[in-house]
Design a protein around this nucleic acid. Sequence first.
DNA 1: ACATCAAATATCGTATCGGATATTGGGTGT
DNA 2: ACACCCAATATCCGATACGATATTTGATGT
Lengths: 230, 230
Amino acid sequence: MKPAPEAPRPPAPRLMPRPSLGDEVYELLLAEVIANRMAPGDRLSVDGLARQFGVSQTPIRAALIRLEAEGLVVKKHNSGYSVADQLSATRFRDTYDFRLLVEPATAAAAARHATPAQIEALRTATLRMGKLSSDTKANYSRFAVADAEFHGQIAEAAGNEIVRESLHRLYTHMHLFRLRYHATVAVDAVNEHDAIVAAIAARDARGAETAMRAHIEASRRRMEPCFNET
Amino acid sequence: MKPAPEAPRPPAPRLMPRPSLGDEVYELLLAEVIANRMAPGDRLSVDGLARQFGVSQTPIRAALIRLEAEGLVVKKHNSGYSVADQLSATRFRDTYDFRLLVEPATAAAAARHATPAQIEALRTATLRMGKLSSDTKANYSRFAVADAEFHGQIAEAAGNEIVRESLHRLYTHMHLFRLRYHATVAVDAVNEHDAIVAAIAARDARGAETAMRAHIEASRRRMEPCFNET
DNA sequence: ACATCAAATATCGTATCGGATATTGGGTGT
DNA sequence: ACACCCAATATCCGATACGATATTTGATGT
């Protein structure tokens, strides 16, 4: 199989198990979607992708079924796949309501359960995001990725895998929305992150909860205008 | 395609779009899993199922990829699929922590937003569950299905689709656990449901939240011993 | 210019096939 | 009895082919 945009892969060593083409196609397509190189509604033709990647339909289909299960593409029977729509206003509202339900309590749990290594990793993450606080689009993309990781780290420190999985899915969709419509790095967000980490590091569960709630509410206010501008 | 255990399907009318074999296999396999006719670790052979259902490998694969995405089966590269393990103690804990985070607030939202028709549907649901409060295994299976629907109805009345989807996935996994290990209909659960519906119908958000929290905590206490008995 | 229709073309969904890999069963040695 | 090895068999994965269905294109009529 030949990768679509990247350099040719070196041959896999014989002793390593060879990943399936279906998995490789999935990762490549996911990277395309995540990198925002496809717009909502773009057709994803099984035959076209098979030609593009130089493989048969089988791994293409396997990858697309997985992406559909994750809500990143939609399938129309007998007609094919397309990139899923952006977040609707309703979905945006649901997302933030859900986050406000789950993430403050998660931050509180992280304050109670985080290991010193996890706290150190959170500090590193906020430092790194602070360095990305300039207004280029590429930096914003990196900021959005780092932001999702940051929230995932908190969920992991809280120790509830179901919460982490739920947020992971939400963040993928939010990431796409941001890349398309919201390219302003929020210096305020970095400060809000710092406050969350400080509370977690201080083992202040109530403080972490309050800081996370404030952050999410501010994040919502920052993004809400995008639903009027589009 | 011939169905595995059921009667032959009548021919689809010409004017109706014909569902894909992949979708049909998915529904049949899901029904098998949901009906607990497969045990954790059971192998699901692509070739074997293709022979059993009288179709090619292709729709079998499509269905299994979807079931894997839902966590109901697991795939081992080059080796095949098997039924996923039951809930672990950790996963059980995470599930209940998540439910306690999400469902009381959802019940409160339902008390604020439910339509009269939705309230009526909730009443009907609790009545139906009350009639299933006998200790046969078949009734427990129906009870478990009705219980999941009941909670889904509350999430729907609350009006947050992300919450509804998250709970739907959780309930599928819990349903399987119950069928395998916990077959005692909880008369108490029915009373707890009644209390939740009464609070929602009375537009008492705080009461609904309290009743839901109490119900989930009681449900956890009822199911926890199963992790010692196995 | 727009609507309708039919043919051509592209694509989807499935079946079939074959090579790669895993599993199973039998034989041998300790 | 257990461990190891190897051959036979089963299964997985991907490629290919083909019929069913959707989409596109061009012609025709108003």
